[in-house]
């Protein structure tokens, strides 16, 4: 599955759960070509081409987060398009509200659409300031937290940093395994809808842990600056790491691999050391 779909999927699942749809009948079409001749319940279109043939009726609601949704027949409920492509051919009918938030749409003049709304954003191509604001804000928050943490609880960051520095391969392996497994588990949990809050909580904890890893890496980087004030050096180190993560992405593939590797190494080191509460020592083997 395309990882970029995950945030949209989470939003849609949130919309479905608040809308009170039945989990048993919710269907998520991830990939391939599909014809929907009859479907009762919510339908999520992912990286797939889903067609409602002429003369066929699906109940809806339908959420388009990727791929293509082609309507020749009838959708009784609402259609919400967040991304991907929506095509309503001649004779197509959408009984509920067609809400366009993002993606491309092609609506025939002969298609019947009961109600149509568009959530318009001022600009689909944000300017450089808008584009970098989230990164800058995140960097400042992490740098501030890092500065405070290093002043109040330096041994914690020291322990995590030592694990990342002395055992990078082990940290990377543990980080990669945890992220792959838990990301899948949390996405899977989200599908059950009942465990949706647990899934969101898990993802948030995961992000916070990655943030903690970045702070620890920033602490390590700050040590190289030879600044006597540990708070300042850690803050600058965190900024350095964040800049590196952004800049290195310019190199195709390798840049992403290095950035991902850094984040996973930090994550692994945090987990291995119980968030810095215990030094990590691999088992001892005969030399």
């Amino acid at each position: 599955m395309n990882l970029e779909l995950i945030p949209l999927l989470i939003i849609v699942l949130l919309m479905i759960s608040t809308g009170g749809a039945d989990v048993e009948t919710t269907e998520f079409v991830i990939e391939g070509d599909h014809e929907m001749t009859e479907h009762r319940g919510a339908l999520i279109v992912g990286d797939a081409t889903v067609t409602v043939p002429a003369g066929e009726v699906v109940s809806g609601p339908v959420y388009v987060i990727g791929g293509e949704f082609r309507v020749h027949g009838t959708v009784e409920g609402d259609v919400t398009q967040l991304s991907g492509s929506l095509v309503a051919e001649d004779g197509a009918a959408i009984g509920g509200e067609l809400q366009h938030i993002g993606g491309s749409e092609e609506l025939s003049a002969e298609a019947t659409i009961t109600e149509r709304t568009t959530v318009a954003f001022e600009s689909s191509e944000p300017g450089p300031i808008a584009a970098y604001t989230p990164v800058v804000v995140t960097t400042l928050i992490l740098a501030l937290v890092g500065a405070l943490l290093s002043r109040k609880h330096e041994p914690l960051l020291d322990t995590v940093g030592a694990a990342a520095h002395d055992h990078p391969l082990i940290s990377l392996t543990v980080g990669a395994l945890l992220s792959v497994t838990f990301l899948s588990v949390f996405v899977f949990m989200a599908f059950t809808l009942i465990l949706f809050p647990v899934s969101i909580l898990g993802l948030l904890i995961g992000l916070l842990t990655i943030g903690y890893g970045i702070i620890a890496l920033g602490y390590l980087a700050g040590q190289q600056l030879n600044i006597p004030r540990v708070g300042l050096s850690t803050g600058l180190g965190v900024v350095g790491i964040m800049v590196l993560l952004q800049v290195i992405g310019v190199i195709p593939i390798l840049g992403d691999l290095i950035a991902g590797g850094l984040l996973l190494t930090g994550l692994g080191a945090v987990v291995l050391t119980y968030f810095g509460l215990q030094e990590f020592e691999p088992v001892s083997l005969p030399e």
Binding site: I170, T173, A176, S184, F188, P282, V283, L285
Partner: peptide, 30 residues
Amino acid sequence: ALAAGVIYTNFDRNWLFFWVFGLFAFTHLL
């Protein structure tokens, strides 16, 4: 396999068993 090699070399073997059973359980659940 390489990830398993790293874990086997640096952790107690029971962790590897635990991961294996956990992965199988999750896989079959999927």
